[in-house]
Amino acid sequence: MSQSIEERLFTIRYKADDKSHLVIEDQLVCATCTDKPCNFFCPSDVYLWHDQERMTSVAYESCIECGTCRLACPYYNIEWVYPKGGYGITYKYG
């Protein structure tokens, strides 16, 4: 049986910092990007485009720290760093 992303994310523990370790550097770049690849390349659905606000939101609390976003954005518009000490992801199974 296939699990949803939410069910898979339940198998990890994440201690979120108050400050995001993922930053969209320029929302205007996102607004002019036609295919919005960040909405598709992140395995934990961190990025979401909002048509009315014309911006991409970042749910950094769900980030699994794979680093895909820093490589896959064709405009290099996402700043990605590891969360500071004591914060971030802990895997329950492996």
Rank of each mutant, 00 (worst) to 15 (best):
P74A: 12
V58W: 04
D51R: 12
C73V: 02
R70C: 09
E61T: 08
V58Y: 01
T68Y: 00
C73N: 02
G86I: 04
G86E: 03
E61Y: 03
I64E: 06
M55P: 04
Y87L: 02
W49Y: 14
W49N: 01
E53Y: 11
F40V: 00
R70T: 12
P43E: 04
K92A: 03
C69N: 06
G85E: 06
P83S: 00
Y75K: 15
Y75V: 08
E65F: 00
Y76G: 15
C73D: 05
K36N: 03
Y76T: 15
E53L: 14
L48K: 07
T34Y: 15
D51W: 10
M55G: 10
P43D: 06
C73A: 04
I78Q: 11
P43R: 09
P83V: 00
D45E: 11
C63P: 07
Y60S: 08
Y93H: 09
W80L: 07
Y76P: 10
I89D: 00
W49C: 10
Y91M: 09
L48C: 04
T56H: 06
Y93E: 08
D35W: 13
C66I: 01
C42M: 03
P83N: 00
T90W: 13
D35R: 07
P74F: 08
D35V: 14
G85F: 14
Q52H: 13
V58G: 08
C63K: 05
V81C: 11
